[in-house]
Design a protein around this nucleic acid. Sequence first.
DNA 1: AGTGTCGCCTGAATGC
DNA 2: TGCATTCAGGCGACAC
Length: 275
Amino acid sequence: MPELPEVETIKNGLANKLHNKIISDAVINRPNLRTFFPDNFTENLKDKKLTAFKRRSKYLLIELDNDYILISHLGMSGKFTIFSDNEDYPKDKHDHVVINFTDGSSLVYNDIRRFGLMDFVQKNELEKHKLFVNLAPEPLTQDFNTDYLYNILKNKKTNIKNAIMDSHIVVGVGNIYACESLFKCKISPTRSCNTIKSSEISKLIDIIKETLKEAIASGGSTLKDYRKEDGTMGYFQHSFKVYGREKEKCTICSSKIERIKQQGRSTFFCPECQK
DNA sequence: AGTGTCGCCTGAATGC
DNA sequence: TGCATTCAGGCGACAC
């Protein structure tokens, strides 16, 4: 389940290996992922050079030398793999997109659950694209600060965990990092937004930034030393304090970690530490 | 307008 | 054993 740090790491890995490569041809093996591929998807990729690799929220942005950007979201299970040989792809039934380069290498997109998507947008139209027009600030920028978040949360009645996962408030904080950040701040995930004090919000922002930065650094170092035959760039095992640890002992107070459902999603927290 | 729920999808895990 | 159900989750669409 790639969250912002994983997407950032994958973006850097793709940039290192694919910068300035030229597409010889592209193949899609089905008409859609979560959404349909745009018309002329493969035709628009043919003969294009990959000129830059960026990220906004959890979207990968691959700039082409024809004024367009290839937008890619990995959803839950999307994976990019680079192959340097000249074998024929796809090889797996979930290899949905194959992009071949003029040097004989290939980039394969595999996505078991097909929650991912791909689209094109003109470079100067990115912020107007329907997927981007309503996106909140990036968590690692100055725009995500105490004043900003306090003013949004002070009139909200929904729970704080739901709020920090809301892409209209801040992007890139998924279920794992929402749970982990709230634990580090000792804030209960069930608290109503309008009860969170300014000092708590300040700490929450610091913790979210710190948690994401640590995960990016961890992913980066993992990627650097990554050696695997198929060149897979995937997901990195981080150590979690509460996520996925239902009924295990809290590392701080030894109470049992609880799991509850919020908006249909599992939330893990320590009922003693988090108030 | 703000808030909560549903559906998309596969495969692993669990239940009877 | 084997079939059916549950669960995981980002995020747009929809309902209230």
